[in-house]
């Protein structure tokens, strides 16, 4: 690990000033410190943003404002979150371990980097870590990699759970930065690799996430299904977040997001459109999966994700529509 200087910001403004002066923000540190140990991140200056006061959850009209420094554990346990947006609580609780969730924050979770093994191993070629060096995963051990949204340069997933639920819930990322405040819909926050895989998201240098805003509760049935290799403490192979409402035996409204399937948290309105207005049947679920996966491309070890996504989608829709009927 390279030597670094650590300062603590006691307000968002102080944090912004530090970022402006070239510091890197550290929140829970559960991802950044690992990256620093491996020298994949080598900041000379760190500014801890834990004391900026951005750790509140508060009502914002009908919606909810979740401060960037709210811990994952606190967010998932919060009464209003559990009542109004249970999908979010479920997704968070499906992630990592209790120790990590105590430490991890809302903002940090959104910015967590991929778990691609080649990215974390500096003996390997990786365009995300070292632009232009190549992508060792493409023809390597790519069991956990993406089948949607990949590029010639990179096939890594955004691995997290929380953002998948937020995507289905139409969350908005609130930021402050050198060019003033921004409201970035979650759907626009993460970047597909394209030919610039080193940039995971649209944050600009010096920009700070201050909160994530959730719109009014939908009152829908909300299910988060995380498919993984072991029962806990494993990243998703595929995850599905759904928020839907049934009316007279038909799907009246439906928001669907997928994790660890694409290079970014994945949402495809065409899939939702297949479902809306229809009676839930296995055939309909299969049709939705077909639309979802029509451009999916496997790279060998991860080919199974394509049928798995279809199955996970069917299971999730089956569960949500059965619950919705009751």
């Amino acid at each position: 690990m390279k030597p670094f200087v650590l300062d603590h910001a006691d307000s968002p403004d102080a944090a912004l000033a530090a970022l402006d002066a070239g510091a890197t923000a550290i929140a829970g540190g559960t991802n950044l410190v690992d990256l620093m140990k491996l020298e994949l991140a080598t900041p000379e200056k760190l500014v801890s943003i834990r004391r900026t006061g951005l750790d509140e959850i508060s009502a914002d009209g009908d919606g909810l404002m979740i401060g960037a420094l709210v811990s994952n554990a606190d967010c998932a346990a919060h009464r209003r979150v559990r009542e109004g947006w249970p999908l979010l609580a479920k997704a968070i609780l499906a992630g990592a371990s209790p120790q990590l969730r105590n430490r991890a924050t809302t903002g940090g979770n959104l910015c967590q980097r991929t778990r691609c093994g080649y990215f974390y191993d500096s003996t390997q070629a990786c365009n995300k870590r070292e632009p232009g060096s190549g992508c060792a995963a493409r023809e390597g051990f790519n069991r956990i990699h993406a089948v949607l949204g990949t590029s010639d340069q990179c096939i890594a997933t955004y691995p997290g759970d929380m953002a998948v639920a937020m995507l289905a819930l139409d969350a908005v990322v609130m930021t402050e930065g050198p060019y003033g405040p921004r409201r970035i819909p979650l759907a626009m926050f993460h970047r597909m690799p394209g030919d610039e895989p080193s940039r995971d998201n649209v944050l600009e240098a010096g920009e700070l996430i201050t909160a994530v805003r959730l719109p009014a509760p939908t009152g829908g049935v909300q299910v988060y299904r995380k498919v993984r290799d072991r029962a806990s403490y494993a990243f998703a192979l595929v995850s599905v977040a759904v928020d839907l409402a049934m009316e007279e035996g038909r799907i009246a409204r439906c928001a669907l997001a997928f994790g660890s399937l694409g290079t970014v948290p994945w949402r495809d309105r065409a899939v939702e459109n297949v479902l809306i207005g229809e009676k839930p049947t296995p055939a309909l679920f299969a049709q939705a999966a077909e639309v979802l996966l029509k451009d999916a491309q496997g790279f060998g070890e991860n080919d199974f994700k394509i049928p798995l996504a279809a199955r996970a989608l069917a299971a999730t829709l089956h569960e949500a529509t059965q619950t919705g009927k009751a």
Binding site: T123, Q124, G140, F141, R230, A231, S232
Partner: peptide, 25 residues
């Protein structure tokens, strides 16, 4: 243990990716 047979390196060389059973398992 997942080896990359192109260069012989061990891909999953930590406890996050080499999956021993956790309590929930």
């Amino acid at each position: 243990l997942a080896f990359d047979v192109r260069d012989g390196h061990l891909v999953n060389h930590d406890l996050a990716e080499y999956h021993v059973p956790v309590h929930a398992d």
